[in-house]
């Protein structure tokens, strides 16, 4: 089971975090900080897997991360998941979907479309289990939801119209 998904930038700011096992807010922040400390000290040429994370994550917790430009994508999970598959889930499903939704995603997309990020994540992982692995399918579902939001209410939050100069 996946325990948590985190997107942290290279300065340690959380950009997205979702915990599938209950953690109090303080603990969540502590975990994010801890993960960031571990990741920021890792050189580039090493494996993407970490098993010895320390006691605060509980026993048997594993971590898979992928470093893209200014962001770390981090999945924490227990020993029932396949590490290599989790890596594929990050790069071939999650990030690819983001790329399709935001047209080559960058940190600013993630920051300003906080709520849309959650829609996407919820279409990929539900309750710590993998829900869908086809990014086309995910994008379709996300678009349906977005359409529904904009048609039923004026108070839309998901503003796709971030000027392109913002995204630089």
């Amino acid at each position: 089971m996946i325990k948590a998904v985190m997107v942290i930038n290279t300065f340690g700011k959380p950009r997205l975090s979702k915990f599938y096992e209950f953690q109090p807010v303080e603990k969540q922040q502590e975990l994010i900080r801890h993960v960031y400390t571990v990741l920021s000290n890792r050189p580039d040429n090493v494996s993407n897997f970490i098993r010895s994370l320390g006691a605060i994550f509980g026993p048997d917790t594993r971590l898979v991360y992928k470093h893209y430009a200014t962001l770390y994508f981090v999945f924490l999970f227990d020993n029932s998941e396949n590490e290599l598959a989790m890596l594929d889930l990050i790069q071939a499903v999650f990030v690819e979907t983001l790329d399709k939704c935001f047209r080559s995603v960058c940190e600013l997309d993630v920051v300003f479309n906080y709520s849309k990020m959650h829609i996407i994540l919820d279409e990929i992982i539900l309750g710590g289990q993998v829900l869908e692995t086809d990014s086309v399918e995910v994008v379709k579902a996300v678009e349906e939801i977005s359409k529904l939001e904009s048609t039923t209410s004026a108070g839309t939050l998901i503003n796709k119209s971030i000027p392109s100069w913002w995204a630089r």
Binding site: P14, L16, V25, E26, Q28, Q29, I32, Y114, S115
Partner: peptide, 12 residues
């Protein structure tokens, strides 16, 4: 929506 963002930053 704002609160969720604030939550992510670690505020009560």
């Amino acid at each position: 929506a704002k609160l969720m963002f604030i939550h992510m930053l670690g505020y009560p």
